[in-house]
């Protein structure tokens, strides 16, 4: 069991980080903390992917023309996925931050529970 963890150390770390980020995104009340949680979660996935593509003592897959031994190079596909994932994560974070700014202007708080509470109060007043 111990050996198992040591040989898969990056993956184990990635899953633990994923759990931290996921629970932060789900449970934190502060919107900024939620966004940080999202970023931890995404970064954990990139760590997982990068670990999957890593080959010991291999170099970056910039291949000269002609026949080559694939064992000399790391797997380029996960790196490509990580790059795409980073782009997606950046744009989603930007949307979330813009939304947070607007919510703060509107409600003067970053606490999502407080915002929902304020809306409920407003609803009740509207009915009355």
């Amino acid at each position: 069991m111990n050996n198992y963890i040591v040989t898969n150390l990056p993956e184990v770390a990635a899953i633990i980080l994923f759990g931290i980020g996921f629970s932060n995104l789900l449970l934190a009340r502060n919107l900024i903390k939620k966004i940080i949680g999202l970023n931890i979660m995404d970064t954990a996935i990139y760590l997982f992917l990068a670990a999957k593509g890593y080959v010991d003592n291999a170099v970056a897959p910039i291949v000269p023309p002609g026949a080559v031994d694939p064992d000399l190079y790391v797997n380029p596909v996960p790196s490509g996925l990580v790059l795409t994932g980073i782009v997606v994560s950046v744009s989603v974070t930007a949307v979330l931050l813009a939304l947070t700014v607007r919510l703060y202007e509107e409600f003067n708080t970053l606490d999502i529970d407080e915002i929902v509470h304020q809306l409920r109060v407003k609803d009740k007043e509207a009915i009355r």
Binding site: L25, L26, L96, L99, T100, R102, L103, F107, I115, V116
Partner: peptide
């Protein structure tokens, strides 16, 4: 809609 889309996004 601001609050709803925030919850939706999360």
């Amino acid at each position: 809609t601001l609050a709803a889309s925030m919850r939706y996004l999360i």
